[in-house]
Design a protein around this nucleic acid. Structure first.
Length: 267
DNA sequence: ATGGTAGGGGTCCTA
C-alpha cells in the first residue's frame, strides 16, 4: 500500500495536478491539508473517476483536511476521540475545529493533520498550537496504550521543523514559529509516545525539505523547511519498505508550496 | 530593503 500526504494549498485550484499525480505515482491513500474549501465545495468527481473515495472536513470557513482512498474508507472520525477539548482561548476557538480527520483505509488508521500554524510566538495562536499538540500526544499515546499492535499513521503538515537541519537557514527563522524549543519538544513528545518519522531514514538531511515559500524564488534557491511528516506507530513503521519526498511536484507554475511525501507499506 | 507570491473572498487576511 502506498500512503501519501500533501498540503495542496486549495484543492479546487490544484485538483488536476493532484489527481494527475495520484495516478502517475500509483498512490492508494492520500491525506490532504489546506483544501481551502467547504465540504460541499470539495471536487470529489475527479477523484471518483480514478476510483477514490473521499472524506473531507472543513473548518473555520476557509480551510479543511481530507483523505482520498482507493482501498476503502471506514470508521471516519473527526478530532481526537470526538473530543476537541484542547481549545481554551476565544480568539482561537474558531480555528479549533477539526484539524484532524481520521479514517481506516486498507486496515491502517490514517490521520490527516493540519497542525495550527502559530503565526508568531507572542500570538494566542502559538499558545493554542502547543495545547493542540499536547492533546494530540495524549490521545495518540492512549491509542497505543490501548492497542500496541495498531497500525496508525499520523500524517500531514506539522508546521514544525524538528531540528536545525530541517531549515535552510537558522538565522532566517530566528525568533520565528516552527523552530522554537517548545514546538520541537511537542513534536518530540509525539515521537516519544511511539510514533516514528518513517521518511527520514530514506531522506537524510540536512537540506531536505517539504515546503518552500512562494516568494523570493525560495524553491529555486533551495530555501525550504521540512515540516510535512509521516509518523508511524510501531506496527506501521515495521511495514515501511520505502519513503520519499516528491520534490518534483513542487516545480513549475501552478504547484502547491508543499511537496507530497509518501511511504510504501508491505502487505 | 519587513520586501516577495499565491489563494480565497470580497475591496484584506492567511500562509
Amino acid at each position: 500500500m502506498r500512503l501519501a500526504t500533501w498540503n495542496v494549498n486549495s484543492i479546487r485550484a490544484r485538483v488536476d495536478r493532484v489527481t494527475d499525480w495520484l495516478e502517475r505515482a500509483d498512490v492508494d491513500v492520500l491525506a490532504m491539508q489546506e483544501t481551502k474549501c467547504s465540504d460541499e465545495q470539495f471536487p470529489t468527481m475527479p477523484f471518483a473517476a480514478l476510483g477514490y473515495d473521499v472524506v473531507h472536513c472543513g473548518f473555520n470557513q476557509w480551510n479543511g483536511v481530507a483523505i482520498a482512498s482507493r482501498v476503502g474508507i471506514d470508521d471516519v472520525a473527526v478530532g481526537f476521540d470526538g473530543q476537541p477539548t484542547w481549545s481554551s482561548d476565544d480568539a482561537v476557538e474558531a480555528a479549533a475545529e477539526a484539524r484532524a480527520l481520521g479514517a481506516t483505509c486498507g486496515g491502517v488508521r490514517v490521520w490527516s493533520l493540519y497542525v495550527p500554524n502559530g503565526r508568531t510566538v507572542d500570538s494566542p495562536h502559538y499558545a493554542y498550537k502547543l495545547e493542540w499538540l499536547a492533546a494530540l500526544r495524549d490521545t495518540a499515546g492512549r491509542w497505543l496504550a490501548d492497542d500496541p499492535a495498531a497500525p496508525i499513521a499520523m500524517v500531514g503538515d506539522w508546521n514544525i521543523a524538528p531540528t536545525d537541519d530541517d531549515v535552510w537557514s537558522v538565522e532566517a527563522y530566528q525568533d520565528s514559529t516552527h523552530v522554537t524549543p517548545p514546538e520541537r519538544d511537542a513534536f518530540a513528545a509525539v515521537v516519544d509516545a511511539g510514533y516514528a518519522d518513517v521518511v527520514r531514514p530514506f531522506a537524510p538531511g540536512p537540506g531536505v525539505f517539504t515546503y518552500w515559500d512562494y516568494t523570493r524564488l525560495a524553491f529555486q534557491k533551495r530555501r525550504g523547511m521540512r515540516i510535512d511528516f509521516i509518523l508511524g506507530s510501531p506496527a506501521f513503521t515495521d511495514r515501511v519498505t520505502h519513503a520519499e519526498i516528491v520534490r518534483e511536484e513542487r516545480k513549475g507554475k501552478g504547484a502547491s508550496d508543499h511537496a507530497p511525501v509518501l511511504a510504501d507499506l508491505a502487505d
